[in-house]
Write a protein that binds this DNA or RNA. Structure first.
Lengths: 319, 319
DNA sequence: TTGTATGCGTTATCAT
DNA sequence: ATGATAACGCATACAA
């Protein structure tokens, strides 16, 4: 490995002059500087991240922690973060699983964006207390080193339910999400509230877990109980996709016998037949805002709570 | 920040004793050790990654470089890598974009898995020459520090084409991939060879780029030219999805007028109606094998070239 | 403008 | 069994 020491030796100057030249300090003579840079290039010099970090106390790297690499949900979101971060000279790395949590406390990361319900809140709080900067996208957490940017789940769920009701449906299923999920919980609360407000309504809850297969399972139950037109609010699109798939094997047609609305507007949703009605929001913006808030926090700014607004996409899967 | 120095002070021992205790060395007295660990815990001590790395010359972190965070393709593959890596005590981080390339030469990573055609081969070779360990999944590259694990593209493409031909189709379109893509190039070569071998055949190539929208575009051209049953080999599933979608807007039916086979068996493919015939392989295994090879390289093992075998999934989209 | 010296937190060698 | 100390590569305050 070639270090500034090697460059210094070859250039006949001290390591500090090399360091200054490499960092573009105006203090060093233009000629000397050019010569040093030239030699550094010849030697294929690359600075050592560990040494630099040890000295400067930051890495210019931000981590995004997600539950799993699978699922079409994260793509755009991460891309939104990355673009924002790169613009400011930061790099984004994606991490998943408990083992990689260490990267944060060990100082490998200047901050983290959390989108992983399995990441314990107490652990997060512990890191925040140690001075680490965090942005949470999947829970409410009050701390000076933590900003939150959350989806407007309640507005979305209300929009979806009201759309079903306005379209004349009186029998409504809700396929719920995992109980640990903040988003699922918020959406469910709004659903129940809307049901109460629109009494009388035949309302049935089916426990789901945001996976396709739980959507399929829900479909089987709905098929079995079928006694006339029914509407279904799948609390996320992933389950709606599963539901569509399973329902294809039944005599019931979506948009005719069974009416469906989802949440998230994942890409697959637009490829379903009939196109799925759903709650849309800019995932790219979601990611960008999260990155932006983290950058603010890192720059010493205060904890801020942002909200991502949503809107309804109406399609023939409902009317 | 609390360092071993703080622990040493509080425990009334030297930093070297603390270091030994922390690393579970048998040289240090059990009582002393217990006391040190206790204090470290009270102080919420966490080792500093930069300092450790500077000394030990490795991070126990491996990076996977991908073209984009979007697309359903990577999920299982990355999961396969992660599981294998974690089992051996390594962490996996996902990187995308030129800016993050620095993590490798700067010593932040013990090795990298490359699945990003936009990552220049010369640059890769440069890193390999500097001693960095690499596994490439998307090109052929001979170097003692580089292992390759490649899909058996030619077998897959041949299988797909022969399936079309055996099913009696004599007019065949191939929707190609980006010319920079090794996989696309390999598949295309096999396609052309199969065409020659099965003369006479009406064979038409449509330039694609592995994206959904290029599949849609291909569909429009095929629609316009329609003069009777035609078969289409989309060199990846992503384009087949786009083709399906666009063809829905036409009078032609897949499996009746137009016959389609894809490559990759992405999850969406199984949700298409009729289900898409395609070339399947275990993405999880693909990732696991890649990780395994990297681990071997890191352990000082020789460069090895592995191949991932594929097989055909037959469905009514063809017959 | 350039050089000297120190320290970042850790590991590890060598004494004791 | 424990301590003193050097070294990893770099940035920077201070001296010259």
């Amino acid at each position: 490995m070639v270090s500034i020491k090697d460059i210094a030796k070859k250039a006949g100057v001290s390591i500090s002059t090399v360091s200054y030249a490499l960092n573009g300090s105006p203090k060093v003579n233009a000629d000397t500087s050019r010569r040093i840079l030239q030699i550094a290039d010849e030697l294929n010099y690359v600075p050592n991240a560990a040494a630099r970090t040890l000295k400067k106390r930051h890495t210019m790297i931000v981590g995004a922690f997600i539950t799993s690499f699978e699922g079409a949900f994260y793509g755009e979101l991460l891309q939104g973060m990355k673009d924002m971060l790169n613009k400011q000279g930061y790099d984004l790395i994606i991490c998943s699983g408990t083992q990689s949590h260490r990267l944060l406390p060990e100082g490998m990361l200047d901050g983290a964006i959390i989108l992983d319900a399995t990441f314990d809140s107490d652990e997060l709080l512990k890191y925040a207390n140690r001075g680490h900067k965090l942005v949470v996208l999947d829970r409410e957490l009050k701390h000076e080193n933590i900003s939150q940017v959350l989806l407007d789940n309640k507005a979305g769920a209300t929009l979806a339910m009201e759309y079903l009701i306005e379209s004349g449906h009186r029998k409504i299923y809700a396929v719920t999400g995992p109980t640990e999920s903040f988003d699922a919980e918020q959406r469910l609360q709004a659903v129940r509230l809307t049901v109460e407000r629109n009494h009388p309504l035949e309302y049935i809850e089916i426990q789901g877990d945001f996976t396709k297969s739980s959507g399929e399972e829900a479909a089987r139950r709905i098929k079995d109980e079928y006694s006339g037109p029914a509407a279904v609010f799948c609390l996320n699109d992933e389950m709606a996709v599963g539901l569509y798939h399973e329902l294809k094997k039944s005599p019931y047609r979506i948009g005719e016998d069974i009416f469906v609305v989802g949440f998230d507007n994942i890409e697959t949703a637009s490829y379903l037949q009939p196109q799925l009605a759903t709650i849309d929001y800019s995932k790219r913006r979601f990611g960008a805002v999260a990155a932006e808030q983290l950058l603010h926090l890192i720059a010493g700014g205060p904890s801020v709570h942002e909200r991502i607004y949503v809107n309804l996409i109406k399609t023939p899967s409902v009317f």
